[in-house]
Write a protein that binds this DNA or RNA. Structure first.
Lengths: 188, 188
DNA sequence: GTCTATATACCGATAGAC
DNA sequence: GTCTATCGGTATATAGAC
């Protein structure tokens, strides 16, 4: 594995575990087994390396989500599949987590992958809901973009509740609650 | 204003803005105008001071939420009032934010106020929903605790989406989406 | 109670040899 | 490309005078 890849992968892990402020160049070097000089040869500094790591994490998250959203079944079933995907709930979302960090939000290079990921995800789910409505499967009363934002927010907020409780239960409740409301909204 | 109060208030602000890892004793001293020796006279260290600040923030958040949830109107209207409360969305939730910080989650003293706040909030809203069902205002199909978790998650996740987009819009969409689903669920 | 001085470690990076 | 040395600054306190 190339030195750059080891650096990026270690940075991805540390950003997920400790956030941007809590991740030091030294910790990245230790986890990756790459020396100081080597790290600064390949990347100009911590923001540069973090940006590369976030771009990679964003692409991976998108691929994983797409696998569920593009699956078989009705719009409702595909959203349910996405929500019920097996997750290590207490680790949280490696992209959503970054939105809490002021240094990430303040740096366009760092915020861009985060923003793009959620824009894509909301748009993808909104499209699914619109499809379901066109097919007569879902009631037409709900606005697709608003409903999609609510679905994505339930997942992100579910992580927050789970970490606060040190238990996956609130996440699972929130997902069940959201699907319950969405199910009641299905056209008869 | 007492020295302790100035320290606690400054710590509350800094925890909200920068998180636990990103908040240093030095920054607290500068914002509060309290000296080093004085700070360490009143508090044993950063964790002690942060715990006091979080307990106070939790109590304040609870009081603000209760004002909406105990207001006039039906269960749906009171939940809508809570969701539509005027918020500085891009600042995020000062309690929910802490759930992302590994040092907070790992320290029982720091996590306790966060956990208790969300336990209380979910329970309060679940009770409201159960009341609405008993009164025949809301359909009885949805589980109150699950639905309440979804409502709270939408708010917390809405903050995440808003900060990611550097715009309040996704928050407002998520709230509208959630209320739309809840409204469709009202008994006729 | 509050002040200044001091301490050990780490942060994020640069310099220059190999 | 990788290494070691070095840098000015911060993190998180502790010590002891006043």
């Amino acid at each position: 594995m190339a030195t750059q890849d080891r650096l990026i992968e270690s940075t991805q892990e540390l950003l997920w575990e400790r956030g941007y402020v809590g991740t030091s160049p030294k910790a990245i070097q230790q986890r990756s087994g790459v020396g100081q000089g080597s790290m600064y040869h390949h990347f100009t500094g911590k923001p540069d390396l973090a940006a590369a790591a976030l771009r990679r994490s964003a692409a991976q998250l998108r691929a994983v989500a797409e696998a569920d959203l593009a699956g078989p079944g009705t719009a409702y079933e595909r959203i349910a599949a996405y929500l019920h995907r097996e997750r290590d709930v207490l680790r949280g979302c490696r992209i959503g987590r970054m939105a809490q960090d002021p240094d990430v939000v303040a740096d366009p290079q760092l915020r861009a992958p985060v923003e793009e990921t959620f824009d894509w995800l909301r748009g993808r789910i909104a499209g699914l809901i619109a499809e379901g409505q066109a097919a007569g499967e879902l009631g037409a009363a709900a606005d697709p973009a608003d409903t999609a934002a609510a679905v994505v927010a339930v997942v992100q907020g579910g992580y927050v509740l789970a970490r606060a409780a040190d238990s996956a239960e609130p996440f699972e409740r929130a997902v069940r609650g959201a699907l319950g409301l969405l199910a009641a909204h299905r056209a008869d």
